[in-house]
Write a protein that binds this DNA or RNA. Sequence first.
DNA 1: TGTATTAGTGTATCACGTACACAGTGTGAG
DNA 2: CTCACACTGTGTACGTGATACACTAATACA
Lengths: 287, 287
Amino acid sequence: MAAKKSKPRSRGATQAKTPLAHATDRPITHEDVMQASARIDPDLRRRSQLLWEDRSRPTRGPKPALTPDDVVQAAIEIADEKGLAALTMQAVSSKLGFTTMAVYRYFPSKEALFDAIVDAGLGLPPKPPLPRGDWRAELTQWAHAKRAMLIARPWLAELPFVAAPHGPNWLAWLEAVVDSLSATSLNEADKGQMLSILDGYSRGASDTSISLARARARGISEKEWAAAVGADLGRAIGDPRFPKFAALITAPADGRARTLEESFDFGLQRVLDGIELYIKSRTSPES
Amino acid sequence: MAAKKSKPRSRGATQAKTPLAHATDRPITHEDVMQASARIDPDLRRRSQLLWEDRSRPTRGPKPALTPDDVVQAAIEIADEKGLAALTMQAVSSKLGFTTMAVYRYFPSKEALFDAIVDAGLGLPPKPPLPRGDWRAELTQWAHAKRAMLIARPWLAELPFVAAPHGPNWLAWLEAVVDSLSATSLNEADKGQMLSILDGYSRGASDTSISLARARARGISEKEWAAAVGADLGRAIGDPRFPKFAALITAPADGRARTLEESFDFGLQRVLDGIELYIKSRTSPES
DNA sequence: TGTATTAGTGTATCACGTACACAGTGTGAG
DNA sequence: CTCACACTGTGTACGTGATACACTAATACA
C-alpha cells in the first residue's frame, strides 16, 4: 500500500435540536462539551478544530507569505467566477502565485479548505434595525438575507454543508434568529423549534433561485434558464401522469407574475403566520 | 489538445414558479414547450432528453447485456452502501462485471448517469389514503414521505439536484401536492405557491436528519453523531458572540425531548397552519 | 450472404489530490 | 553570537478517476 485514497470521511452538523444531553440539572459548560467531543471521529474533530482555533503562528521558521484567509479568499473568488468544479488546489495556488503544495501548508486537505470556505461564504447575518422587538420583521429580514446569501454564493448549496463542521458564522446566523425570538414569549425549546422551521424554509425555498444564480454564473440568461426549466416541467403537459400539475403550469396568469423573491416572501409570510399563530396560542389560553 | 476536461456544464431546474411565459391567451401545449426548448443549452437539453426518452433499442448490432436501469441500480447500491464518493464509473462497471467503458454505452457521461440516479432515487410519492379530500392530512403524509425518502438516500441531498434536469419522478412528487391541494379553494397560482412552501420546508428542514443518516451510513452511531454536532454547537457556550443560542442549548429540557421526526412534524404543522390560515382568508372575506 | 451498425474491450491521456524529500529561512537555546 | 531546529515553499512522483479512441465481435436488414 502506497498512497492513500482521499478518505470520504467526516461529517457532523446541523440545526438545533438534539444538541446536547440534558442529563443532569447543572448547566452545561464548555468543558462538558469539549469532554464529550473526546470520542468524536478524529478526522471530524480535527476539521472542526481548524475552523475554530486561532491560527497563531509559531515563531520558528520563515514567515509565511500568506494567511489562511488569503487562501480562502482566492478559493471563493474561483468558485464565484468559475464554479465549484473549477475550484481545484492547483487553481487556488496558481491564483496566489504559488505551487500547488504550498496551499497544504495552510490547509491539510481540500476538505478542510472547503470547511473554511463554507463558513467564510456564509458571512455574518444582517444587523436587525434598531428599534428592536419586532420579531416578525426581524425574521423576515433574516430570511431574505439568508436567501440572498445563498444566491450570491450558489456553490454553497452545492456542498453538503450540512455535513460539514459548523463554524462561527454558521452559529452567528442561528444566534440572530434566537435573538429575534427573544422578543416573544416562547420558551427555549420552542425557540429551537421555530429556528428549525425558519432555517429550513429559508434553505429549501431558495433552491429555485439558487439554480437560477448558478445558471447565470455559467453565462446563461434568465430567459434561457426559464426555457430549460420550463421545458422540463412542461413535459407534464399532455402526460397522463401529471394532469394537475400540467393544469397548474398552463393556467393563464391572472395578474402580474410574481418574481422569485416575491414568491419566497409570500411563502415566508405564511410560515411566519404559522409561527405567530403558535405564539398566540401559547400566550392566550384557548384550550 | 488531446483529451478534453470534464466540462462542468449543465444545470437547469426547480420548483414551480416562472415556469412558462403566459404571453398569449391560448393554453400552452407540449409543442410550445418543445419549441421553446430549442434554444436551450444543448448539453442540458441532451441530459433532459436522456431522462425522458424511451430508450428503445435499435435493432442492428449485438444485444446489449444490460439495460440503463441495471446500471442505475448498481450505482444506487454503491451510493447507498459506500457513499457518493465511492460511486465511480469503475465501481459501477466492475459491480456489473464489465469494463469501465462499457457503462458509457448506456450513459454518455457520469453526469448523465447521476441525473438518472437522482430521479430513480426520488422514487414515487406515496398514494394518499382513500377517502380523499383531507388536504392537510395528505400533505402531512407527503411531507413525511419526502423526508423519509431523503433520509433513506442521504446522498441525494449531496448532489446539486436542484440543478439537474427534472425527471418523471420529480414531477410525480410535485403532482401529488397539487393533487392534494385540489381539495382546497385555492386558484392555480396559489397552489403553486403552496407547493413551493411545502417543498421548500420539507427539503430544508430535513437537513439535520439527512446529516444523521449520512453519518450512520459511515458507521457512526447516533450518539457519536450527536456528540460531534453538540461539540460544534457547544462552542457557543461561553462565547460572547452567541449568548442567546448558548442559553437555548443549555436550557434544561422541560419534559420529553422531541425526536427529529417529531420536530419535523411540529414545524410542518406550523407551516400547514400558515397555509390553512391563508386558505381561510381567501374563502371568508375578511378585509 | 454481406455490410452497416452497435456492444464491449484495451489502451492511452489528462487532471487532480496529495505524499515525500529537499532547500532555504528565521529564531531561540546554548 | 551562533547554530540547530522548526517551519515555509518547491519539485517530483504516484494513484485514481473520467473519458477519448481504435479495435473486435455480433447481428439484422438489404
